[in-house]
Design a protein around this nucleic acid. Structure first.
Lengths: 220, 220
DNA sequence: TTCTCATTCAATAGTTTTATTGAATGAAGT
DNA sequence: ACTTCATTCAATAAAACTATTGAATGAGAA
């Protein structure tokens, strides 16, 4: 093989891997898989896809070595192939937030609709935890909480929050987190809490980002 | 806008930006632009593209805010929009090297053809420089050398190396570097040098990686 | 073995992307 | 104002990708 062909092939392989990432559905799937291993149907339900279509997207990700599957009883559990997959997606996400005007405007208009909900950074949260001035709640579905969550966080899945709200203290600051910066569950929770007299804000990023930075986590 | 639409739009925008990266030609262009600002025709020549085609790819990158252009006299100089673009591409590249079997095999077969040329890591090179036990040569075209190069490196463009080889000491270790890990120019140089009785190896990565890590550079 | 059902495969139509060609643009120099 | 020429635009055919549908597969349970 001559050098030019070799070079072209290398870039082609790289591009092939990136191609697996250039689809909005698959990015959403990656964000979901970053929470932990889940079966195909769970992915389909949580991303509004048909099972066949979800499976098809998963095959694409698998063929690019971005995700792996493992059989557990009747179900096929999918997970990210390794930490570097998440790291790469993070780098791309960061690039999007910093560079892309459309993304910035989209986020801004969304936040304006909700009255610019307060967000706290990872550093803010660490400080608040150290000062014991915060209650951290995990608003993801319970399955994902069980796969791993921020140390000492309480599980308040978004769908249960409305009727379990009274279990929360109204005199302390509440920080809600979810799957990541592109996930709206924490926004929902914060809006709901603030409307009901609580003082809540959302963690800027999500559980996978927290865990990737080696901050204390817990499994249950 | 409802939440589902918003979420879909966000992922769509992210995917749109990634789409600009899913083409082998555009990746090669990014690697070239990482060396410094260059006009369109330089890009076309160095990537074996027609000028029209190169321009078209540049528009795609520009519309995704990944590159910027600036007029200098008769020429339109393109450059990376910022450091994060290179960082994201690095994260993806790292992912490819670690995960993708095809990429690994391609690299391995290429290296085998050349007798497994010795490569040194950035850390190796720093150590060698500190011990003053190495001559570092930059084998990229002179234009790119002038845009910035490793401190104290000597410019030996690949095309001139054959007849300028006698300027190099045959009793010292030589390390050659080029545009990056996917660039073959340093491999060429090392092969050529070793065949002629010199002791040479290539730097694993390239100039942009060196500069991104804040290691000492120089302009001329 | 047979049944069940989670998952994958296969075929398709509609949409998007790529490289090529040649024409259009528009800034710099005469 | 005219000319030059680097760059971009426009049109096109070939190739690749997406979502949908329904059928096929194949591991576990009966």
């Amino acid at each position: 093989m001559n050098i030019r062909d070799f070079k072209t092939s290398l870039y082609k392989e790289m591009a092939g891997m990136i191609k697996a990432l250039d689809n909005p559905r698959r990015l959403e799937i990656l964000d979901l898989l970053a929470q932990g291993p889940v079966p195909v149907e769970y992915i389909a339900v949580n991303t509004n896809l048909s099972v066949a279509n979800a499976s098809q997207h998963l095959q694409v990700l698998k063929n690019s070595y971005l995700v792996e599957s493992e059989r557990r009883g009747k179900y096929n559990y999918y997970k990210l192939a390794n930490q570097q997959v998440f790291n790469a997606w993070c780098a791309i996400r960061r690039l999007g937030f910093s560079q892309n005007e459309e993304i910035f405007e989209l986020l801004d208009s969304f936040r304006k609709e909700r009255g610019y909900l307060k967000t706290v950074s990872t550093e803010d949260l660490i400080k608040m935890i150290r000062e014991d001035s915060v209650v951290v709640i995990d608003v993801r579905p319970e399955e994902e909480f069980k796969n791993g969550h921020i140390e000492n966080a309480l599980s308040f899945p978004r769908k249960d929050l409305q009727h379990r709200m009274n279990e929360l203290p109204s005199d302390r600051e509440i920080v809600a987190y979810c799957r990541g910066p592109l996930c709206e569950m924490a926004d929902d929770a914060v809006e709901m809490l603030n409307k009901n007299g609580y003082s809540a804000s959302r963690l800027e990023k999500g559980y996978p980002d927290w865990a990737a930075s080696q901050h204390p986590t817990q499994k249950e």
